[in-house]
Amino acid sequence: MLDARHNTTRTRNFLVGFRFTGIDEVSASQFEQQFGPLPRGDGTFFPVRKERAQDAPKASDLIKTTGSTILHLSDIHFGVDFGFPARPAPGKTPLLESIERDLRDDPPGLIVVSGDITSRADANVLQDQGLRFLRALSDALKVPKECFVIVPGNHDIALNDYRPTDYSHETAFNLFTKEFFGREMTCPELRRYQLTNGRSIEFLAINSVRLRHKSERQFGYVQWRLYEDALRRSQRNPDDFRIAVLHHHLVPASREESVDPNYPEAGVSVTLDAGTVVEGLQTNGFQLALHGHQHVPAITRIDRGSVVDGTMRLSEKGGLVVLAAGSAGATRLSDEMRDNSYNVIKLLDKGYSVEAKRFNPGRAPEKLYRAAFD
């Protein structure tokens, strides 16, 4: 923030209070005439947690992992859309058993869950089936809970009961993550990990299920300003490989959008402020973004330019790779991907590889495609 009186740059934040002597209602045209275009979204109000987790890891802390591989799951959809049996049956394998069999010889060191753990934002399903599955997955693959990164999806938060003044519509999901991690999660949250091959990575967990307006609930919205402030305050290690995780798309995963009349809440995939998010991630040195949402696995590389001192500048590292996961458990699948799927990301001594696995209750996971990046 520039202080014009002293021509210096402020480097500290200060708490400021305001005393209102009156509030007058004006028409949209009067507002635009005096102040410019109408503001969008509910950016005046932000949720404030009553309790802050004292044991939350600082961005500078390094959490040691037991491997150098990331399992990326998304859109499990426990509840009415879940398609895997609870117990083994002829030609039917439970989801946990399929994943454990596939990865038992090379278990991951980290597990990312990019939203839609439930089908209908049912708090009981989230606390029962969702919590039980993730705990069992942690035990089966021997991945400690602090090595999970979990973000909400549009089916995890009850948007029909959206309350922008206190964010109480997020209570069920916050209780779920508190039960799983044993502490209250902060938002935004940066976490750093030390892999067994010596590389360090940093995750930024993003909630893309904020609403800009009730009429836009079928879209994702991040409100990047919240994350920009958190990144600016954190001390970045230039050697870290930075990964962002959110639920909604930054670019389309499907080749052509189609609106499903039976699923209007996710008729269009791309996040409303995707351009701002992509620019922000690139500016802050993020190389990979993971998401789910429309059940189509895909990989896209973006190199979005930003203007600095009158010059359009592109990324020095080739841009941002956006990795979409398909659905790990739903029956409602896309015509472009009729099986369930998940991603396995291997962080190599230099660069990384991505392998998408396809499977279903009657078919063991096998390679869909593989890609390598320097």
Score class of each variant (00 low, 15 high):
N174H: 15
S138V: 05
F133M: 00
D240L: 01
V296F: 03
D105R: 15
T65Y: 10
K357S: 07
R225L: 10
P94H: 06
D122M: 04
H213I: 00
R232F: 15
F78M: 06
L71H: 05
I201D: 00
V321C: 04
L126M: 14
E336N: 08
D55K: 06
G285A: 03
D55M: 08
L368S: 07
D273I: 03
D139H: 09
H169N: 08
G351V: 08
V80L: 12
N262L: 14
R358W: 10
L134W: 03
T11V: 13
S168E: 09
D273P: 05
A86K: 15
C187M: 14
P39A: 09
I70E: 02
S334Q: 07
G91I: 05
Q30C: 09
V125K: 06
A298W: 03
V209D: 11
P188K: 08
T186F: 09
L71F: 01
R313L: 08
E257N: 12
H169D: 09
D303E: 03
N124D: 13
A372K: 15
G109D: 07
L195D: 13
S315I: 00
R52Y: 07
T9A: 10
V259N: 09
L2Y: 13
D260T: 07
H293T: 00
W224E: 10
N160L: 08
P90N: 05
H155T: 03
L137A: 01
C147Y: 06
G220K: 00
N360L: 09
L71W: 05
E97F: 06
A59I: 02
N262A: 10
Y221D: 02
R232P: 07
T65E: 01
V113M: 08
A371M: 06
G310S: 11
G351Y: 01
N13R: 14
I299C: 05
G326N: 02
T118A: 11
Y342D: 00
R363L: 14
T171N: 12
M185I: 12
S315W: 00
